[in-house]
Design a protein around this nucleic acid. Structure first.
Lengths: 192, 192
DNA sequence: GATTTTCAATACCGTACCGTATGGACACCG
DNA sequence: CGGTGTCCATACGGTACGGTATTGAAAATC
């Protein structure tokens, strides 16, 4: 079994970040159950030797995935809510619409997978809590700048995010006569 | 290995329904990943011999669980929305509150687990769609009887269910100054 | 009482999965 | 060129898991 010549062909190395990226893709496609070392390796066209070079164990990867997700979400929140004065309502509407767009390719499946995982894993739950706190705070700030009181601003921002996550869990496409109009009505009911 | 005397003690038999019930409990505690034959058997204090007597294979159990969940949900929907004339608003508020109650012991975790599973399994997705259609139709009927137009009634019923599911995915308890008041505000915003 | 049915335990097989140990290959540096 | 570091492939071990085959025992039936 001497295949030295085959072994010489080494594609560009995978770094730790590439593994995390692959794991996030698997998370979108398969949920938490997709975070398996060997199937991830296969997905990335390497074997688990590479995995164990970069990560101590599976938990190490899982924690890295959560940290990366958090970083990305919080960066997005800040981007979405960085409205110029006078454009707050527009930013809020846009936030609703981004999530309501028919099955945001990767972001929403990952979001839902992380939240399902959070119901059973303390570490994931802590991360979700941080992200939610940041989200609700940023959205509430936008609502406040529209002249709403802090209590109502907070309620609205909770409703906003609860709606978009919940809606994505529902299967309404086939039986809703006019989902476009319904969504528009709901957006106004939340934001306005 | 002759332990005939131990074998003589036979507790009352498990029937198929007991297995399905145990599976639903596991679904609440562990999500779809909890539907494993051997761990279920352990949970029910038998071995998998019993399982294979009652079910052809795991898929047979899984389908039975989905059917049972659907039957139960639809029965509940009808119960919750069977409002006496003049009590429609109350029924709608109650529906929101039932789901918003702090972590409904089993119903909501199962609901969320089934929905997560539905994002990756066509059979589960079909069941969720049926349940959603029935839910939205029943709630819309209540809204209509309050004098709302069909389009607005439909939008409100979607918002109602999207909100309660989404809210249960969020982790707001620690950072929300007054979640009770926020929930009350949201309930009125949806129902009224 | 003998036979049949119902229900369940267990052995076995093959595959999946995580983690550890070992060896290989390439790049870089002194 | 030899040594070191980086990165990865593979073999191995142990456990989990679904499914099949076989056997045993209690309950039901004749």
């Amino acid at each position: 079994m001497d295949t030295g010549t085959e072994r010489k062909i080494r594609p560009s190395s995978l770094d730790r970040a590439a593994w995390i990226k692959g794991a996030l893709a698997a998370l979108a496609d398969e949920g938490h159950a997709g975070l398996r070392v060997e199937t991830l390796a296969k997905r990335l066209h390497v074997t688990k030797g590479s995995f164990y070079w970069h990560f101590r164990d599976r938990r190490d990867l899982v924690d890295a995935v959560l940290d990366e997700w958090k970083r990305g979400r919080i960066a997005d929140i800040h981007k979405q809510t960085a409205a110029a004065p006078g454009k707050e309502l527009e930013a809020l509407r846009h936030t609703i619409e981004v999530y309501s767009a028919s099955r945001n390719r990767k972001g929403l499946p990952i979001e839902l997978a992380v939240r399902e995982w959070a119901s059973r894993d303390a570490r994931a739950a802590a991360v979700v809590e941080e992200v939610d706190a940041e989200r609700v705070a940023c959205a509430a700030r936008l609502f406040e700048s529209l002249g709403l009181e802090p209590a109502e601003a907070a309620a609205r921002s909770v409703l906003l995010y609860a709606y978009v996550f919940g809606f994505s869990l529902m299967r309404c496409n086939r039986f809703m006569p006019d989902s476009r109009a319904a969504k528009a009505w709901i957006t106004e009911r939340i934001a306005n």
